[in-house]
Write a protein that binds this DNA or RNA. Structure first.
Lengths: 236, 236
DNA sequence: CGGAAAATTGAGAAAAGTCAATAAATGTGG
DNA sequence: CCACATTTATTGACTTTTCTCAATTTTCCG
């Protein structure tokens, strides 16, 4: 069982405003979903902690993140929170067939995203086969990722979860060999990995003590021994 | 951490052969995916314990279960197993956009299913908008279900997991007020709920002792106090 | 620089896991 | 159709992991 406190509003951590306006730079560069969003998506900016959409609200639109990090979460009746995924640049949100969103999306950092109203999205789906393939692909990827997460939550111990989390971050990072930036709090990470913030902290600091990672600041981690980290992750 | 034993071959439990040939009875009754499978799917039968397809094999076909129960699982390098879902009548399998399956499917009971080769499926997808809507709907449902499962695995304690599992079974059952049949072993349930078979057994028997359920046999459970079970499930 | 939020660390408690023994159910062959 | 062998399920005693609670330190940001 977990504590049921109010969730903290995370601090802003990165300036992201330089990444705007990809549609003016290259109007038709990327096919499928990204192309649609570049064409018809309306740019929106959210401050850290702001809600982008709420679970059970009508699913009025689909989104693509241009910059920043979003957490997608479910809250139980008694206030426990599960973060199903962290969403960052190029990722989509709300590709659902249902009338309501099935999770809440909140900005962790300042977030820039493109928003496409559902009627426009559905019209485009009907006419554009490339878009359909792209959406199919993205939904399949999400399904694979959620199965990965089930393995993590159902089978891995705390050390394995922490190591797996860092390896995933590194895999998504632009510079795999460079320093990772963790825009989310320990509580966010805990709610994603199904453990407490104290256990997350202990696991990260154990990796630091044993020289597997460096952590010059709580939100900056460098993987020193990638092989060792993979060994600890073990099962991913 | 879990034990890494070889997984048992479950026993056969229900005769299912009376459910065959829905396509002769009502050729065009159900739209979308079911209609496709009824039309072009080839009927296959699997014995308990038989592998239907393996993770990482080429994803040659899509499937729909006509009768029986299938487990979909991932095995870690050191032999831990996570069952992402149990698949039963009318459920689909292998709606993926990727070249390989991302989980293994094994028959728990005798299983009858319809198999549609991928080229035929993709051709139908291109020409049939109703099918596309139906597939979109099914993938979205799978995504919602996997988020439910992440909440269970990440946030619920053993008693809540057991109660939630039974409520889900009851929800899917033809007769919600009747007796539930559990075709899977305690080990299967444990690997689905992220706990050990001993803990599953303890939780079920605690529910039995407190009169919330009756369990005339290990694979037959009747929910006596649905409200109480919901209260224990708590967060689902 | 100072206050607030977040992270770390330690000590003790609780939940679930492990190991082992027993009981029950299943299915088989005589 | 029944006795037996095998598999599965249950139960208990003990161990381990992770959680909880609390104090302290560090970091962040005005």
């Amino acid at each position: 069982m977990r504590q049921h406190q109010q969730y903290p509003t995370p601090i802003e951590q990165n300036a992201v405003v330089q990444f705007i306006a990809p549609s003016t730079a290259a109007p038709e560069q990327i096919p499928g979903f990204s192309a649609l969003m570049d064409t018809v998506g309306i740019r929106k900016v959210f401050k850290p902690g702001q809600v982008i959409f709420l679970e059970d609200q009508p699913s009025d639109a689909v989104y693509q993140v241009v910059a920043g990090t979003v957490r997608c979460c479910r809250i139980t009746t008694d206030g426990r929170r599960q973060i199903s995924r962290f969403v960052s640049t190029d990722d989509e949100m709300a590709l659902t067939a249902f009338k309501t969103y099935d999770y809440t999306a909140e900005a962790i950092t300042e977030v820039v995203l493109l928003r496409c109203p559902r009627p426009a999205f559905e019209a485009a789906l009907r006419s554009d086969e490339t878009l359909r393939d792209s959406v199919f692909q993205r939904m399949a990827s999400e399904l694979t990722a959620s199965r990965d997460q089930m393995v993590l939550l159902g089978q891995l111990n705390a050390a394995e979860r922490a190591a797996t989390f860092l390896l995933r971050l590194a895999g998504n990072s632009a510079e795999p060999k460079g320093e990772l930036h963790l825009p989310m709090t320990r509580q966010d990470i805990a709610d994603h990995l199904g453990m407490t913030l104290e256990t997350v902290s202990r696991m990260f600091n154990k990796l630091k003590r044993t020289g597997v990672i460096e952590m010059p600041a709580p939100d900056r981690i460098r993987i020193c021994d990638h092989d060792q980290l993979s060994t600890i992750a073990n099962a991913a």
